[in-house]
Simulated assay, not measured.
Amino acid sequence: MTESKQKTLLLVDDAPANIKLLNSALKEKYQTKVATSGAKALEIAAREPKPDLILLDIMMPEMDGFEVCERLKADPETQHIPVIFLSGKNNQDSRSKGLALGAIDFIDKPIDVTMVCIWVTEHLKSIQSSSD
């Protein structure tokens, strides 16, 4: 359990209620950082220590999640950070686009926090075992 405590998640959503829900579900097991805009997410992701995983909303004003992911994956400093999209845009085109941009998963909204916690844990385990 202490190893999980060291993992850092970046939660990105423009809706404060979604951030609060995710943060309250994940902060017991992980370090969490939050951003309510794409620009802030890029800023936080570039800082040390880098997040181990990013949960990223798609539909945000100014810069949507697709653009954020594209910029993260284009930057050698952040391209290794796994991204999971969280979105109410539950259609095959959005899923395909998100995965093509380099996301490792796509979770539909409204989110089930129990399932999000399971997905995050499993993805972090998978990432850890592939880097060993």
Rank of each mutant, 00 (worst) to 15 (best):
R95T: 01
D64N: 15
V120S: 11
A17L: 15
D52E: 04
V68T: 10
E43T: 07
D64P: 05
A39K: 08
D132E: 15
D132Q: 11
M63N: 09
P61R: 11
F106H: 07
L86F: 01
Q128H: 13
P49V: 06
K5H: 09
D64M: 09
N90V: 10
G98A: 11
N23T: 12
L10Y: 07
Q31P: 05
A35K: 01
L99H: 03
I118A: 15
D93K: 10
L22K: 07
L53P: 00
P49L: 07
K20I: 10
I127K: 13
D132V: 06
C69N: 04
V113C: 14
G65N: 08
V83K: 01
K27Q: 14
L72W: 13
M59I: 08
V113I: 14
K125G: 11
L53R: 03
P76W: 06
T78F: 08
V12N: 07
Y30C: 00
M63Y: 06
A17M: 15
D108I: 03
L124S: 03
P51K: 00
I111F: 07
A45Q: 05
C69I: 05
G98P: 00
K50T: 04
T121V: 08
D105Q: 00
Y30F: 14
L22F: 12
T2F: 04
E3N: 08
S130A: 15
K5T: 08
L22N: 05
T114F: 11
G38T: 04
D105C: 01
V83G: 02
Q6T: 13
K29C: 06
F66T: 06
K40E: 11
E28L: 09
A15N: 15
K50M: 04
H123Q: 13
D57M: 01
M115A: 13
A100G: 08
N18L: 03
I44W: 03
G88S: 14
